[in-house]
Every structure is written in structure tokens, then in C-alpha cells.
Amino acid sequence: MVDAPSDHSVASPDDIGGRPHELFSAARGLGKELWQDKPGFIGLLLLVALVLVAIFAPLIAPHDPAAQSLRERLLPPAWVLDGSWVHPLGTDNLGRDVLSRIMFGARVSLLVGTGVVVVAGGFGVFMGLLAGYFGGRTDSFIMRWVDTQVAFPGLLLALIILAVVGPSMTTVIVVLALNGWMVYARITRGVVLSVREEPYVEAAELVGCKPARVLYRHVLPNLTSPLLTLAILEFARIILAEAALSFLGLGVQPPATSWGLDVATGKEYMFRAWWLVTFPGLAIGIVVLAINLLASWARVTSDPQEREKRFARFMARRQAGAGTREAIAK
């Protein structure tokens, strides 16, 4: 048994509502905890850096991402023979600067990825909660709807909607969310079905909690870890799905760009110019890694038992470290 030390236990959001100073100290406590978990902290730093790059792309990008220069086609990165520091990561088949394109592409990719995960996740989790908790006809209706939509080819649906409405960032987000919410609904329903049989859920109902409170306070917290995992996997998939749409001319419209689009177009030059797929691909990989690191920290933090174990490990390490330092001083 590990006692939660006072500076470690953070008030839950429910009992600090409306008291800003406590919210602030809770946030500070969380920040301190994140600092102690180095991988999670690195993940957060990477994410913040990428978001800043996306926001300030016009200020820091060395070139206009759409400026073509046919004389400078397919230049390799700077550290390779024939490369130059004018185009640090080389140029593409139309002589556009790869680094600048990645910086600008971050805007679309991050926005679409986050937007779709939030919209599809929100809707899917909501439907899954309803289906799992209320059961019966609600469950049958929602799950048959999910089955029907899973059976329907997603790309076709996307093509129809995009052809009618016309491509834009918003439509891309809506279309991808329409294609992606079912998996959240299914996973949520499964967890809810098992959790709602737990005695503590029955206890909450017997005590007089209304369904919304039971779902929010007792069922939803159990979904943190499967949903975080799923959202991260989906994030990477969405970036690539956006690329597929853009590749078909229904996603991002050139001159704008996205990482996925760059990977898709660079694919044809894979053997002559590896840097066209490698760098946008690396960018996708780094985002997914950063979110993973942060999410794994969030998953542990959301489970009181895991959280106290982690804290105990941290304290043990610190004490061991202090012991060695003392020994060296002697």
C-alpha cells in the first residue's frame, strides 16, 4: 500500500469546478507529474514544437512551398553530394522546397487528424455509450447502423459527398469522421457492456444517480485507456486517408499541401529521390510517437492505482539516487 502524498494527489475536476485557484494548482500539480515522466514530457515538447511550427509556418519557412523552379528539380538534402543548404531537405519533382512544404503541410495534417479524431471519437463514443448502457432496441438500432456503414465502402461514400459538396478542409474532416466513427462506437459499447455489470455501477444506480451521471462518472473513466490507444492509431490512419483523398483530387487542393499528399506524390520518385517520401513520412511518425508518449502518460495518470505505483517507483529512484550521491561525496 502506498499512501498518496499530498503534493501528488490532484483534485478531480468535479470538486474544483468554479474555483479557479484550485484549478490552477491542480494544473501545476499535473505539470510537475509530467516533468517526472520524461518520455511523456518529451512527447509534449515535440507536440508543442510541431504545433508552433504549423502556426508560424509563413514566418519560419525558408521558401514559398508552392514556388516551382524546374532548374532545381529533385535536389537531394544538404548533407548528400550535390545538395545545398539553400534547400536543406532537398526539392521535389517541381523544384519545390521539401522543408517548407513539410512546415506548411503540418497545418493541414494536424488539423485534419485532430479534427477527425475529435469529431468521430466524440460521436462514436456517444453512440457506443447509448448502445451499451441502454441496450435493447437502442442497442440494436445503433449497432445495425454501424454494421451497415461498415459494410458500405468508405471511399465511395467519401467520393459521393465530396463530389456533391465540393472539397474543402471542413468537408474532408466531416467525410473522414463519417467513415471513422463506427470503430469508436463498437469499442465503447463493448467496454460499457462489461462495466455496466460491475457492482459499483449498480451501487451508483441504487444510490440514485441518473443515467447521465452513471455514464460520465462511473463508466466513461474505464474507457480512457482503450480509447486513447484507438485514437492514436486512428490519428495516423486519418493522416494517410486524407492523403488518399488529396491524391484523388478531393482533399487538399494544390497549391496547399499536406504530409499525406507529399508522401503520395513522392511515392513515384521513391527510387530516384528517397527524400520526397522519407521526410513527410518521418514527420507523420514523429507526431504519432509524440502523441503515443503523451498518451501513455495520460493513461497511467487516469488510473489511481497505476499512478501511485509510478509515484512509488519515482520516489524509490530518487532515494537511491540520493544514496549514491552521498556515497560519492564521502
Binding site: S12, E198, Y200, E202, R217, P221, S302, D303, P304, Q305
Partner: peptide, 9 residues
């Protein structure tokens, strides 16, 4: 063991 929500103080 099962009748108390493990995530609530």
C-alpha cells in the same frame, strides 16, 4: 472489492 469504483476517492 468490486462494489467501489476504483477511480473514485
Amino acid at each position: 472489492y468490486a462494489s467501489l469504483n476504483p477511480r473514485m476517492r
